[in-house]
Design a binder for these strands. Structure first.
Ligand code: SF4
Ligand code: SF4
Lengths: 148, 148
DNA sequence: TTAAATTAAGATAAAAGAGTCTTAAATAAG
DNA sequence: CTTATTTAAGACTCTTTTATCTTAATTTAA
């Protein structure tokens, strides 16, 4: 729910790169294998992140992808914006055309708060913070533990 | 986001029936036209609600659908459960297999709250309450105003 | 220079979600 | 009884998302 599978793949891959990239490029094949994401599918998704200046890529042997900026300066909302777009924060439950405060559906009062809270969370949460938190608490970004 | 289109159609249709049913059956054709939902598609969705004992249906001339119980006793979560299932409240952003408090993803702290809040809203909001609110405030459940 | 590795690009396919169409069964009314 | 109306049921199509496959371009290193 909320995010497309592509977007979830993008976030998980970005977290992997943040945690394992440190200075050098990480190959997409490694990310795909460690996170159990279809390789060619992930390649396209990361291309989109590269096109949106969130990552840089490098072809050829020893190639791969890396974060384009400092990990503390990239928030999840930028990834969501690149993959799913910001429209997901405009509508929500009933998704009527042109909904909003002026033309609300009956659930607006109940839902607009949580919708904006989700948006804020994505805005405020950076890759750096999340990667540290993941490491410190041994959280996982894959079916398997992140360690290994 | 959150709910499938089928589920949104189901909720909107249920609200229409609540507001316009009062005692008698409402034809699916009328609902479909007033809410601008594909007729045959809506028919199937409402069949599911009937199968789940949320609505009763009546074939033949003067036929249609009606709420199976008092409007104050049917909460949105029952409709969501019938159409999309309750799994949407088990996982959320990263949707890793078997996630949860014991095997959390790094966003669990931030997301589990809003996820449960959405669930609570669906649990606590009844068709009767929503229909009244819609009428009192002239909220809409369609691209057009509900009046007419 | 050649071979291996790796991303880029695009075609294709599979799966899921959404929507359409046809026929059958039930019901009311004339 | 017949006809019109309406839900039930199922086949079918269309679209979007997700996934796979092939070839090209780039880069390293032997
Ligand atoms: S709750 Fe508000 S923003 Fe969400 S669908 Fe309803 S009117 Fe639109
Ligand atoms: S936030 Fe919690 S429930 Fe949601 S996907 Fe992550 S681990 Fe699962």
């Amino acid at each position: 729910m909320i995010l497309s599978k592509s977007c979830v793949y993008a976030i998980r891959a970005a977290l992997y790169v943040t945690a394992n990239g440190k200075g050098s490029y990480v190959s997409i094949r490694e990310i795909a294998e460690k996170l159990d994401i279809p390789f060619h599918f992930l390649t396209k998704i990361l291309q989109t992140l590269t096109e949106n200046n969130l990552m840089t890529s490098f072809r050829g042997a020893k190639g791969g992808v890396a974060l384009a900026r400092a990990e503390e300066s990239i928030s999840l909302i930028e990834i969501v914006k690149a993959i799913d777009g910001m429209d997901i924060f405009k509508e929500c439950v009933l998704g009527l055309p042109n909904c909003g405060f002026d033309r609300p559906c009956p659930l607006h009062d109940e839902m607009v708060g949580v919708r904006d809270q989700i948006k804020q969370t994505f805005e405020q949460t950076t890759l750096g913070y999340l990667a540290k938190k993941t490491k410190d608490n041994n959280f996982r970004i894959s079916a398997l533990a992140i360690s290994a």
